[in-house]
Design a protein around this nucleic acid. Structure first.
Lengths: 228, 228
DNA sequence: GTACTTGTTTGAAAATATATTACAAAAAGG
DNA sequence: CCTTTTTGTAATATATTTTCAAACAAGTAC
């Protein structure tokens, strides 16, 4: 079930849209001003955000801009009647679609469906599309499988490479040993979890510089993480 | 078993719906007008209220509005087809879903199930789905497991972290020692309840500032709580 | 005030988690 | 085949955490 955040200060409209969306089976949340709306959008992972342009405390444009610094949650901007300028700058600030008030609920529903579909397709494509991954001065070129620390090329074995890639594709997410095990060794692997530790050590030997803190942090009792 | 209140003046329809709901295993009660319906809804704790829009003595909109002043019992509004205009124009009545008469009983059942599920999920999820949790100037980022008091990062062990998270996901709820034990140490843990006290102390040492009141309050004879 | 209950603090032992190492088995590359 | 490299295991060492229990402090009831 898709989750939709409604940021709208006109309570009646917010309530009405919420009801309609729930009726359609979406999971919704309403925030009545820009500040709490932005907070909710950052704290939580919504599939779509319906964002009013005119908001108290923090206007819609500003909410979109600040959200975009951290996240790519798709935004449908709700603007007052035909202000073309708003439209243009709305897109500039990271809206993915817009709808002009007053609108028929059916049109909104159609736009949400279209956006969800579009995002879905983009996501599928994008995952396999990123060509390189970076963490500080470490880079991985996926096509060539070349790993560099600064200018220096680092030779990794297959397992080492995949373990590092997994960690680097999840910067700031603590990954438990068994998660790493299924991601790198496969869901049906029957190796001891200790191999993860051993490979972390191999990686640390190859990528870290003596005296400096390791790029790969241990979170005792939980797993490993590369912290930005 | 879920309890459902049916507020509907057409006796045949009310009777039919009641029968079907009982057949599905719900516990039901019927009220035939708005006044007694509202009274019943206030007096008793139902899981869902089926509310007809057109009612004698007090119409559905008014029932919903007055109920909402006191309670958040989920409401499914039953509207006639031609009152669709009502919902579009300014309605602020506090329904959680609606169904248009005449409806197939299966649709009603599906909407009740969906609503019950939604409520359930909302209750749990608001806690566990968020990426971060906040209490005053304390924040927890769940992915990275980083805990901050203001700008300062606080290092917690696994147990400390889970205990704090549990307390912060239940702000203003007093949690008994044995509840904390099952939530943090697991339902089959066999440690003394005193370890909870010990860990509360560790947490206080790490998160409180000298001279200030502790963020974690003791409720003598009961347990601990973080009060907002 | 005294007895009693409940919560706090402590230090040390026990349990656990992680790091490190050496080595054998398996795979890859000639 | 033989050599080299990679992979996984197991044992040991080290570091950290968890737990317990006892002493102490603070409330509560009489």
């Amino acid at each position: 079930m898709s989750r939709i955040l409604i940021i709208e200060d006109e309570k009646n409209l917010a309530r009405f849209v919420e009801l309609e969306l729930k009726h359609e089976g979406y999971d919704t949340q309403v925030e009545l001003n820009g500040r709490t709306g932005l907070q909710a959008a950052l704290d939580d992972n919504f599939d779509v955000i319906l964002l009013d342009l005119m908001l108290p405390e923090l206007n819609g444009m500003e909410v979109a801009r600040r959200l975009r610094e951290k996240k790519n949650t798709p935004i449908i901007m709700m603007t007052a009647r035909d202000s073309v300028i708003d439209r243009v700058s709305g897109f500039d600030h990271g809206a993915d679609d817009y709808i002009v008030k007053p609108f028929a609920i059916e049109e909104l529903l159609a736009r949400i469906r279209a956006l969800l579909r579009r995002i879905q397709i983009e996501n599928d494509q994008q995952k396999s599309n990123k060509k390189s991954v970076t963490f500080k001065d470490l880079t991985i070129e996926k096509d060539s499988r070349i790993v560099r620390r600064g200018d220096e090329v680092i030779n990794l074995t297959k397992r080492e490479y995949e373990l590092l890639l997994t960690l680097m594709e999840n910067v700031d997410v603590v990954l438990a040993r068994d998660v790493l095990l299924t991601k790198v060794w496969g869901y049906d692997s029957e190796v001891e979890t200790n191999v993860v530790d051993v490979y972390i050590r191999y990686l640390r030997n190859k990528i870290d510089r003596p005296g400096e803190n390791s790029y790969i942090q241990t979170v005792r009792g939980t797993g490993y993480v590369m912290r930005s």
